[in-house]
Design a protein around this nucleic acid. Structure first.
Lengths: 117, 117
DNA sequence: CTAGCGTATGCACGTTCAGGAATATATACT
DNA sequence: AGTATATATTCCTGAACGTGCATACGCTAG
């Protein structure tokens, strides 16, 4: 029965590591935060501008920004009263694009929208 | 005050699209599911094998597999009593690697708790 | 068809988290 | 000093989700 460590895991990722990675993904697992990241694509913005761009409440938006900042997805810079947020890493966009790519594939595969055909 | 559509959004992603993408990320926002994907790296496995590899309960694991399957991250193949799951897309691993890369950078930057010192 | 194994699904409970409203903090101006 | 604006934080509530247990479903063998 090969009772012992028959499992052929290449390297066992510790539960702590998995939790950290999962937390990162969780930061992107929210439409509101994706909208924020999209609004920051290519340009820095103040919280007020993001409120206008996303339609989120100010307090709510600020909380999302804290999460994105804690996750290292955005950086901030203070200028007087305003705080300017900007994307801290281009990998973020890469992640979203991969997801979008997967999404398109599945939508086409399934049998709906896209292409007249 | 730039009242009108002063917002320079390149393309406005619909809320529905954002929700779909967020749902994909959410599927990866769980340590248990990441462990499953890791266990499937390079080889297909039955549910029972995954139970042994991950230490999750059978019912619980099965539910996670349904989510991963619904998200298109894994595919399944039935062979008699057993159901073999395997990674459906190598982009999944790419996503995890990017996240890991970001994680390592941040850990080194902050306190550096990585690996065996 | 009966029995047994592997897998999936339903139910209940506890936790987590987004959302809004109100309030607190920070900076600038007079 | 005080006021005004921009941002952050706190409290609360409802919904979503992971987990364990029990049970139903699918398949094979006898």
């Amino acid at each position: 029965m090969s009772s012992r460590s028959r499992t052929r895991a290449k390297r066992a990722p510790t539960p702590e590591l998995l939790s950290l990675i999962a937390a990162r993904f969780r930061a992107l697992a929210e439409p509101a935060r994706l909208a924020i990241l999209h609004a920051l694509e290519g340009q820095e913005r103040t919280v007020t501008e993001l409120v206008e761009a996303t339609g989120l409440g100010q307090g709510n938006l600020s909380k999302h920004l804290q999460q994105l900042h804690a996750g290292g997805f955005v950086s901030r810079r203070r200028d007087g009263l305003f705080v300017y947020y900007e994307l801290a890493d281009r990998n973020v966009l890469a992640l979203c694009e991969i997801m979008c790519g997967r999404l398109e594939s599945d939508l086409v595969t399934s049998h709906k929208i896209v292409s007249t055909r």
